[in-house]
Amino acid sequence: MPATINSFLKWTVLILFAVFAVGPVLWMFVSAFKTTPEILTTPFRLPSEWRWGNIGRAWGEAGFSRYTMNTIIMTVPAVVIGVALSTLGGYAFARFNFRGGGVAFFLLLYGLTVPFQALMIPLFYNFSRFGLINEYPGLIAALIAVHLPFGIFLMRSFFVNAQAEIADAARIDGCSEYGVFWHAMLPLARPGVLALTTILFTDQWKAFLLPLILIQDDARRPLTLGLLFLRDAQSQQQYELLAAGVIIASLPTILLFLATNRYFQRGLVAGSSK
């Protein structure tokens, strides 16, 4: 019966890793509906009473409505502008050989390897010199910039794969290059745009180090920083609010991922073929 044993082993491994992947998250999520003493004394028990109101308390008294709004203010423009710029740039690099294009492309290629830590020192000091600390436009521009290499590569690979023949056919019909892009290529690259949108959205939503450095005002912090500072707020012993904050901070990206799973995975695979 080796086949059965193999099958048993296979399922054991698959399930164990599934527990490993979601177990800690579920544990934290359940803890959000307990009281602090329950969390500290009976960590593995279900809540004696499910305190659904904890989410509302985190949303209200712990300031997560504000943090969420800040994250949205930060994320949405960064995604919209980032996708637009990446699409245009990716198209240019996919379709044209133009003077300076090679060098620009090479510089972008290395952008994929540049660690943000190598930018943050001048960014911080120059931003403070120009009064951009605590200002969303500065933060958003920086978020867009560091994600451009990835976005451009992803879109370029989608455009390369969109058949050139269709573009030629469109041109024969009398379209300008602009028309080719708008009427023929862009519709073909729609899956790419969707994939990039979902990936960029989750990435920007998760941003931590950039806002850590560029946003210092408590009233303007995004969720990631709000969580960290709630954890470090010395006067509070409200663990259930921290757990509830974790739910608020992670649910949007989890839901988006589940809803767009296929695009998402396809985008990741396309992005890997750089």
Binding site: S128, G131, Q216, D217, D218, F229
Partner: peptide
Amino acid sequence: RTTMQMEQMQTILTTAIQSGE
């Protein structure tokens, strides 16, 4: 008023003051 964590403030205070911000 602007409220922020003390450690955060330490990080930006000198530069912010010198830049006039």
